[in-house]
C-alpha cells in the first residue's frame, strides 16, 4: 500500500513569491525572515521524500464559477497549467505547469464516491495560487506529480466545517489503502483570520489575532473536537469575512487525525494575515 509520509497545512500568501524574489529597494523589510521560515518549513517536506503530492486548496473564482459550482472537486488530468492573468497582474506569480498523478485521482474519485462524497471532477483544470503558493514555498522545483483537491470556501452555500474534517479523514484512509508503493504527502492551504474587500482588510496584523492564536493551538494540538465545538459557518464571519478558508485547515486536521500533535509548528505575524506552517509525520514516521 501507499505510505502517507507527511501531512502539511499552511497559509498561502500570494505575496511571498514577489517578496522573496525582490532585491534592493524593492525588497520589503519582512522578506528575509519570511524566507528563512519558509525554507525551514520546506525542509520538513523534503525530509519526507515524497513521490506524489495531494494538494488541497480552493479556486478563487478563476475556473470555477457560480453557474456550476462544485463543493468538492478532484482534478484528474495528466497535466495542470497554473496561475491566472489576475494573479500575474496582482501578485506577480509565474505561469507554471505541473504533472498529474492520474491513477491516484481516479482512485480517490471512485473510492470517495463510494465513501459518501459526491465528488465533482475535472479533466482540464487550471490551478490557482491556493495550490501554486505551497508549490513555490515547499517544492519550488515543481517536479512531483500532484492530485488537486478543491474545496468551496468561497461561494455560499458552503459545506459545514465538520464535512471538511470528514473529507480529510476519508482522504487519509484512501491514500493509505491505495495499492502501490508510492510515498504520498498531503499539502493543504487555507487561512487563519482574513478580511478581503471589507473594512478590516490589510491592517498591520490579521483582523483577529485572538482567533489566530486559538486556531494555531487547535491545529498544533490536533484538537478537532475543540475546534468543531466552536467553529461554525456563522462563527467564521466574525474573525474576518474571508475566514471560511480556515475550513481547509480543518480538512487537514482531519487528515492528520484527532489528537495528532503537529511535529513542526511555526508562525509569522505579517501585515494583513498571520502566516502559519504545520507538518505532521503520520504513524510515528518522523524522518
Amino acid at each position: 500500500m501507499a505510505e502517507l509520509v507527511a501531512v502539511i497545512a499552511s497559509t498561502h500568501h500570494p505575496f511571498y513569491y514577489r517578496a522573496s524574489t525582490a532585491t534592493g529597494a524593492d525588497r520589503p523589510p519582512f522578506a528575509d525572515e519570511w524566507v528563512r521560515k519558509v525554507e525551514a518549513f520546506r525542509e520538513t517536506l523534503t525530509k519526507a521524500r515524497p513521490d506524489v503530492l495531494v494538494m488541497v486548496g480552493s479556486d478563487h473564482f478563476h475556473q470555477l464559477w457560480l453557474d456550476n459550482m462544485p463543493q468538492f472537486l478532484i482534478g484528474k488530468a495528466p497535466y495542470y497549467d497554473a496561475n491566472f492573468y489576475n494573479e500575474e497582474r496582482e501578485f506577480g506569480l509565474p505561469r507554471m505547469l505541473l504533472r498529474g498523478q492520474e491513477d491516484l485521482s481516479a482512485y480517490l474519485l471512485r473510492e470517495g464516491l463510494d465513501a459518501g462524497f459526491d465528488l465533482a471532477f475535472s479533466n482540464e483544470l487550471r490551478i490557482d495560487h491556493s495550490i501554486t503558493c505551497p508549490i513555490i514555498t515547499l517544492r519550488p522545483e515543481a517536479d512531483l506529480p500532484i492530485v488537486p483537491v478543491y474545496t468551496n470556501i468561497f461561494a455560499p452555500p458552503l459545506p459545514r466545517p465538520g464535512r471538511f474534517v470528514q473529507l480529510g479523514r476519508t482522504i487519509r484512509r484512501l491514500i493509505e489503502s491505495w495499492p502501490g508503493d508510492q510515498r504520498v504527502a498531503v499539502i493543504g492551504t487555507g487561512h487563519l483570520s482574513l478580511e478581503l474587500g471589507g473594512p478590516r482588510q490589510f491592517g498591520p496584523t490579521g483582523p483577529d489575532p485572538e482567533f489566530d492564536r486559538r486556531a494555531v493551538q487547535w491545529i498544533a494540538s490536533g484538537d478537532i473536537e475543540g475546534c468543531l465545538a466552536e467553529v461554525t459557518l456563522d462563527s467564521l464571519h466574525l474573525p474576518g469575512n474571508a475566514t471560511h478558508g480556515f475550513m481547509d485547515f480543518m480538512l487537514m486536521m482531519g487528515v492528520a487525525g484527532e489528537g495528532a500533535k503537529a511535529d513542526y509548528v511555526d508562525t509569522y505575524d505579517l501585515f494583513h494575515t498571520m502566516e502559519a506552517y504545520f507538518t505532521w509525520y503520520p504513524n510515528g514516521a518522523r524522518p
Binding site: 478563487h60 489576475n86 496582482e90 468561497f154 461561494a155 478581503l196 474587500g197 471589507g198 482588510q201 474571508a242
Partner: peptide, 12 residues
C-alpha cells in the same frame, strides 16, 4: 456583491 471579486477588480 462578492467582496473578493470587487476588491480584485478595483485593485486592477
Amino acid at each position: 456583491a462578492h467582496p473578493f471579486l470587487t476588491l480584485t477588480l478595483f485593485i486592477a
